[in-house]
Design a protein around this nucleic acid. Sequence first.
RNA 1: GCGGUAUUGGUGAAGUGGUUAACACGCUGGAUUGUGGCUCCAGUAUGCAAGGGUUCGAUCCCCUUAUAUCGCC
Length: 370
Amino acid sequence: MKVKYELLKKEKNTMGRNGILHTNHGSFKTPMFMPVGTLANVKTLTPEELYEMNSGIILSNTYHLWLRPGADIVNKAGGLHKFMNYKGPILTDSGGFQVFSLAKRKDITEEGVKFKSHIDGSDLFLTPEKSIEVQNKLDSDIAMSFDECIGYPADYEYAKMSTERTLRWAKRGKDVHNNENQSLFGIVQGGEYEDLRKFSALETSKLGFDGYSIGGTSVGEGKDVMYKMIEYATPYLPEDKVRYLMGVGDPIDIIEGVIRGIDIFDCVLPTRLARHGNAFTHNGKINLRNSKFKEDFTSVEHNCDCYTCKNYTKAYIRHLLASNEILAGRLLSIHNIRFLIKLTEDLREAIDNDNLLEYRDTFIKNYQKN
RNA sequence: GCGGUAUUGGUGAAGUGGUUAACACGCUGGAUUGUGGCUCCAGUAUGCAAGGGUUCGAUCCCCUUAUAUCGCC
């Protein structure tokens, strides 16, 4: 079956909304933060650890798995869920962003994108059809349309041309997608331009996808611009479909996104920050490598319910970081992901209570105190 | 006891008679938003064992002392 979005509650003062997304691998409440597991694993974590932190869905990547181990191998394993032993819902990114972020030399044409493998430098050619074919074989619950993610700032003429082409790519992908058990999402582009975002949202919606995402954000623009990008699009997306803001995971950005009607977020931030020694807390981000934690025998965050905070101290994690021990990245990944998922839980409660704006103001006041 | 060699920051060390003493590690901060997992950026020796001398000028030349190390008696 296709995913089904069930709208439960609209917040009174904002575009925030609570809902449930039903998938073939279970349902989860939205808003929700989606941890990133590019190479068929959320770095350093097991599926059991993800279940324990109430993770609703994870993201994996078409481009990376296409190159290694290859879509056929994942397919032979019985699909991505069986291959990686993850029982919850999985969304696969289309590879569009990797063209933007990994390829140094790329040649984008109407047909598709020619670029070099980041693994061995060999020539690759990715098209909307190919991306869908690979995602079909991976057998994720949600496949993403193949899009072009443009940078910031973007020349208006280029942004317009690219946005229209992404729309044509979306249609091409949809035309070849024929997996009844896999949903397909469209992606809104349009750079920083209001008319292009509106156009993209409206035209992508007309194609009739199972859900919609907003792409092309956090590519170098400031926060104000990013929030505008969201505002330009969400009013034109169908209310009965889930909305996913791609690549955004800063706590404040998640809150601002929810206020503007976003349901799902994904981001590498919690796991990357963890591996580099940083932890989210309600009083701001902290760097556990800092010498002031040398003798701090308290947990990362006082009232946190995560496994890490229930069992370990800052001094110990700092020691692990200084010693380059893998466990540090694991413990902080657990904390950071749990922090963001707990944040979405709190946001759902705020939506239920119609006090989302107050929640935001209090959160920001504490978060930016230092 | 005699002779040789060495002594540069927290560590391993480069280096030159003349503006800010290389580099690496460590240390101290910072960065990180649809993930190329030991990343990137910045800071970190008012001083070259100590004292004296030569010189316009010495970490670099000379002397003394200390310490380390090698060889000989």
